[in-house]
């Protein structure tokens, strides 16, 4: 009986969710206390974590191959940035604009990517992000092109907390947003919709034989994923007060995938852990040797793929299970 671990389990999951959210809040608090001079970097981790979470929704929960996820992140970043430059300064409204733009971009991306499967799908996703990149580059009059989009000056959060020079407000705003999104996604992946997506990942034909349409379900997930990525982009725009072309790039998409594989896809915690490890290593090691930090990431990635295909989160859950005396 101890091996029983149904996917969408009973009410016993509630305390677990609360513990998980508390752990994230605690980790954020620890970051604030331990690295008070690196709040901008910590906020960047949160912003990218939203991107990696959004990627996990597609890859980990639906089995969709994509290397173009930053198109959705960038859509949110540019939409929020452009709105801010044109006078919308309320940070909450800017995040909402980012979510909306990301969601619409997600719908568009889904409509394109779901025409293909496997390798062709992956190639389409790369084409998609490159197209977005070029659009942002060429439309320099509204996006700032290769110079970046400047002049983003968000107003105080809830009309009370001004965005300060040290990035305190941005950090706590980001942490709050991450907790909200994480709680919402924990619910979503265990909803009927979430279960259907997992079914699609394993066997779309079986889902169809149950009378459930595959494409409409996946399109919905693309919109949701886009909204999450878009919020990440908007947070980045608000926190750094600049949007650059690197936010819609193949490189960012590929890095997000590496982070997800490191942490372990198909689990929301895996997405967070992968982001923290990847960006943490990048931050520390690149300060020592800016040219060779990727070597370390490469070695880590190979080790994970070979020895821990379920990622670092998988290693952790296995260790906990062993510690509890379970098989």
């Amino acid at each position: 009986m101890s091996e029983t671990r149904p996917l969408a389990a009973s009410g016993r999951r509630w305390p677990r969710d609360v513990i998980g959210l508390a752990a994230i809040a605690l980790a954020g608090g620890a970051g604030y206390v331990l690295f008070p001079d690196s709040l901008a970097f910590l906020t960047r981790i949160i912003s990218i974590a939203l991107l990696v979470l959004s990627l996990d929704l597609l890859i980990g929960y639906c089995g969709i191959a994509t290397l173009g996820q930053s198109a959705l992140y960038g859509a949110g970043a540019y939409a929020a940035g452009i709105a801010a430059v044109n006078g919308l300064t309320d940070p909450v409204a800017l995040i909402a604009v980012g979510a909306l733009a990301g969601g619409v971009a997600g719908l568009l991306m889904g409509a394109v990517l779901l025409r293909a499967h496997g390798l062709p799908q992956l190639v389409l996703s790369i084409a998609f992000v490159q197209l977005f990149h070029e659009m942002a580059n060429k439309a320099a009059s509204i996006t700032g092109g290769s110079d970046g989009l400047y002049g983003i000056a968000p107003g105080p959060l809830f009309g009370l907390f001004a965005f300060d020079l040290y990035g305190k407000t941005a950090f706590f705003a980001g942490l709050g947003l991450l907790l909200l999104v994480f709680a919402a996604l924990s619910f979503v992946v265990r909803s009927p919709f979430g279960m259907t997506c997992r079914g699609i990942k394993e066997d779309p034909l079986r889902i169809r034989a149950m009378g459930i349409g595959v494409r409409p379900t996946l399109i919905k997930m693309f919109a949701l994923s886009g909204a999450v990525a878009g919020m990440g982009g908007a947070l980045g725009a608000i926190a750094t007060q600049v949007v650059g072309l690197d936010s819609v790039s193949f490189e960012l998409s590929a890095n997000a995938l590496v982070m997800l594989v490191l942490g372990g896809f198909g689990s929301l915690y895996g997405a967070l852990i992968g982001t923290v490890i990847f960006l943490g290593v990048e931050h520390e090691v690149s300060a020592i040797n800016p040219f060779h930090w990727m070597t370390l990431v490469g070695v880590m990635l190979i080790a994970v793929v070979l020895f821990a295909p379920r990622g670092l989160y998988g290693v952790m859950t296995d260790a906990v299970a062993r510690w509890r005396g379970r098989p």
Binding site: A8, S10, V188, S191, P192, G194, T196, G199, L224
Partner: peptide, 19 residues
């Protein structure tokens, strides 16, 4: 359960708890 949810048109609802 998933199959019955489909029959009732609820298999892709997001704001509902499964089971």
């Amino acid at each position: 359960t998933l199959t019955i949810l489909q029959r009732k048109g609820r298999a892709t609802r997001i704001l509902e708890r499964f089971g």
